[in-house]
Computed example of a mutant assay.
Amino acid sequence: MSLLHFSDLSSFLSTAKLDGVKTYMRMRRVPNHLQVKVIKWFDYLWLTQKCSDEEKAVSCLPDKLKAEIAINVHLDTLKRVEIFQNTEAGFLCELVLRLRPVLFSPGDYICRKGEVGKEMYIVNRGRLQVVADNGRTVLATLKAGSYFGEISILNMGTAGRSLGNRRTASVRSVGYSDLFVLSKKDMWDVLKEYPAARVRLEAIAVKRLEKYRRAPLEKGEHFEN
Rank of each mutant, 00 (worst) to 15 (best):
Y212A: 13
N225F: 04
N72K: 14
N134R: 06
Y147V: 02
L47G: 12
K118M: 10
L9H: 13
M120I: 03
G20A: 14
L97Q: 14
V190N: 01
E82T: 09
R136V: 12
L179Q: 01
G107T: 04
G157W: 02
I69D: 04
K64G: 00
D178N: 11
V30T: 15
L47C: 12
G135H: 07
A169N: 07
I122S: 00
M1T: 13
T141I: 11
K64L: 08
R112V: 09
A196T: 14
K79M: 05
N225G: 12
E210P: 03
A57L: 15
E54K: 15
A169S: 12
G175V: 02
T77C: 14
S7R: 14
I39E: 09
R29F: 07
L191A: 06
G90A: 07
V123E: 00
R172S: 02
K118H: 09
D76Y: 12
G90L: 09
E193D: 13
N165F: 02
G126M: 12
S183K: 07
F91N: 01
V96F: 02
A203I: 07
K37M: 01
Y121A: 03
T15Y: 06
V171E: 01
Y24A: 12
E150P: 03
R26H: 11
S173Q: 03
G135D: 09
P216T: 03
R125F: 05
V102K: 09
D133M: 08
V81A: 09
Y44N: 06
M120D: 00
R198W: 08
R125Q: 07
E55K: 06
S59C: 12
T137N: 10
D8G: 00
F42L: 03
T158G: 06
E68T: 09
N124R: 09
L217Y: 06
A16H: 11
A67H: 05
R26T: 10
R198I: 04
A144C: 06
R100C: 12
L34V: 08
D178A: 05
R98W: 05
F148D: 00
S59I: 10
I83W: 07
S152M: 02
M1R: 11
N134K: 08
G160T: 02
M156G: 12
D53N: 15
H222I: 03
E68L: 13
L75M: 07
D53W: 10
L9R: 15
R136A: 09
G220V: 07
V58N: 10
D63S: 15
